[in-house]
Design a protein around this nucleic acid. Structure first.
Lengths: 190, 190
DNA sequence: GTCTATATCGAGATAGAC
DNA sequence: GTCTATCTCGATATAGAC
């Protein structure tokens, strides 16, 4: 239940963001959204065409936030290795998983072109950000000359996304950290 | 709809395995299972206590199969690097994702101790298998002496699990392969 | 063992009053 | 803009006949 100072439509979007993160698209019902937002059904169908439309607004906002966070770290100060390290070690709510990546396991997201598109675009941009940093590191001689920026970027992002899987399976964030430390040891400049 | 020569209870388990893989636990209804198995409700509640009990049987069987597959590759012939490479490059239905790993994104699986346990145990065993191979490689001098087997094992498994995420986001298996190639380049013995 | 009622509740959406 | 019916259908389970 979101407090005052937020419009009904805002509260609906925020409630949906929470629930998509917690329970995914299939696991989130309009009813649950409305209860959390403290709104009636009429409000939802007034502001949005339905569940899909509301989810789209929620996903877009989450994507923006995620890109802002990763961009700040990857385009921030430090050597390429330090920036990748900062990205990997940043504060995360590990057991909640990635609010964007988790959506790829949702059958109704992947089956719906409109819903999958923002997910794809977001992960694609993070990959591109990572690839640029890796290539910079290769140019500066911090990484070995053979490294492929696109490949390593995919490896880094996959390690993060898969780290969430391992952590959630075990019920503890430790596995995420272990995987990240392994990756950092492989990337570490000699 | 599964053909003849299979008992009703078998058909129920197989249908459930398919649907858990495709749609997850939250997204799978008893009704869908029954339709696919060609059985009535009475059969399901005769053989199993309910949806959760049936899912448990399905998950256990999927876990067994997965462990057999990875075990065959990781304990197979070849140098440690070759075995890890074989594991990473094995034939996969990439866009379907990992039938075990995907369950970690299901809120009702993670919230239910009984359902999460087999998922955790399975991924833990794969990690242990991988860790042994990595440590063997370190002992044989194929990998640098500093490498930590547990860490690299987590990195490898996370890259695979995350590779599915990237692939499903983009709707193409390419991203999975790219991430795996990056990891192999980092692991490649000098 | 398997089937067909039947029951209760929620999902998702529409209609129309205020 | 927001609310409360109302609708149709599916989820999940039980009951009891065959």
């Amino acid at each position: 239940m979101y407090s005052v100072g937020m419009s009904t439509s805002e509260r609906l979007i925020e409630s949906t963001r929470d629930l998509l993160w917690e329970r995914g698209y299939v696991g989130t019902s309009p009813k649950a959204i409305l209860e959390r937002a403290g709104a009636g059904q009429g409000s939802m169908y007034h502001h949005f065409k339905g569940k899909q439309d509301l989810a789209l607004a929620a996903i877009r906002r989450t994507a923006e936030e995620l890109l802002a966070t990763t961009g700040a770290l990857l385009d921030g100060p430090g050597t390429p290795y330090e920036r990748i390290r900062a990205y990997l070690l940043r504060e995360r709510d590990v057991l909640r998983g990635c609010p964007i990546g988790r959506l790829t396991m949702d059958p109704d997201i992947v089956a719906d072109e409109a819903l999958r598109a923002p997910v794809d675009e977001t992960l694609g941009r993070v990959r591109a950000q990572l690839a640029r940093v890796v290539e910079e590191g290769v140019e500066q001689g911090q990484f070995p000359p053979g490294l492929d920026g696109e490949e390593i970027a995919a490896t880094i992002l996959a390690t993060v996304q898969g780290g969430y899987v391992l952590a959630r399976a075990s019920g503890s964030p430790a596995a995420f950290d272990t995987g990240v430390r392994g990756l950092l040891s492989l990337l570490s400049p000699r």
